[in-house]
Amino acid sequence: MSLSSEDVRHVARLARLDLSDEEVEALRPQLSDILAYAEQVGEVATADVPPTAHPYGLRNVYREDVPVDPLPHEEAMSTAPAAEDGRFRVPRIVGPDVTGEDG
């Protein structure tokens, strides 16, 4: 397992991390080593072994179908870095020019 700088940049893009060049070069051997170590799971895990997600084996858990008071809208919005008219405000996502000004 040896990752290229391009591999690291690709994963960083997927993870929405704007890594510096120094970080990419530091992470490249570290990630390679960690993944090489982790790959040993493939030595024993065969297809006939079912995967475990919850140790207690719980499946879907349902609550009683009774209405409860939700978190008030203002409180849910109170932590937002930017808000307007009771909505979260972000730079433009869709439209002909997504590189432009705050939309």
Partner: peptide
């Protein structure tokens, strides 16, 4: 990776 690790968890 993830699926194999979850199988190891079962083991």
């Amino acid at each position: 990776y993830y699926a194999q690790a979850q199988r190891v968890r079962t083991l």
